[in-house]
Design a protein around this nucleic acid. Structure first.
Length: 189
DNA sequence: CTCACGATTAGA
DNA sequence: CTAATCGTGAGA
């Protein structure tokens, strides 16, 4: 397996597919991600080798989802990468609806302003009905999986500082956030 | 006490 | 339009 920054750029532009009862309900394109680089990354839940009930799935062999609850309300979807006990992860920050828009609208509770449906980590989780059920599930699981299609050219990828990790000292300025150039569904800020 | 967030309210 | 505020629960 590879480190989170490499995988982050790799899954940018890939499709995330949500099935319910084996029926395809929604397909979205991953347009914004952040990499969290394990025990040396002060922005990561796994900084310093910390292991808790919440983040223990980060320590599994790469290829599973890490879903956690933040601020008591919202869920965030990550992909765990790298080897067992190498707690790297990629946070999926924003997606673009491709199919199943009506399901996404239903989950979010409104229809107007389409770009506001999935342009943030908590929003996309609600839009695709993602919660702790998927914590630790395999990225090839039929209910929620990532398609390898949709690769993009390097020049379409913008690198930037990560968001809302001001507490992470010197790590906060690392360019570990990646998004698709010109895409309308990038999160605010 | 803070936080890998988002909705709502208040103000300009 | 922007800024401030707050809900909510895990973790330190």
């Amino acid at each position: 397996m590879r480190p989170a920054d490499v995988v982050a750029k790799d899954i940018l532009g890939a499709y995330l597919i949500r099935n319910v009862n084996s029926k395809m309900k929604a397909v979205v394109k991953i347009v914004e991600v952040e990499a969290y680089m394990g025990v040396k990354d002060k922005g990561s839940h796994s900084y310093g080798g910390r292991i808790t009930e919440r983040n223990k799935t980060m320590y599994l062999e790469g290829g599973v989802f890490y879903v956690y609850k933040i601020y008591g309300i919202h869920y965030c979807l990550n992909v765990v990468v790298n080897k067992k006990d190498m707690p790297h992860a990629v946070l999926i920050r924003a997606v673009e609806p491709i199919k199943g828009l009506e399901i996404i609208e239903k989950n979010r509770g409104f229809k107007e302003n389409t770009k506001n449906l999935t342009n943030g980590p908590g929003k996309l989780s609600q839009a695709l009905d993602i919660d702790l059920r998927f914590n630790g599930s395999n990225v090839g699981d039929k209910e929620l999986y990532i398609s390898e299609d949709g690769k993009v050219e390097d020049e379409q990828i913008i690198s930037a500082k990560r968001i809302n990790i001001d507490y992470a000292a010197e790590c906060k300025d690392l360019l570990l956030r990646f998004y698709l150039k010109g895409n309308k569904f990038i999160s605010a800020k």
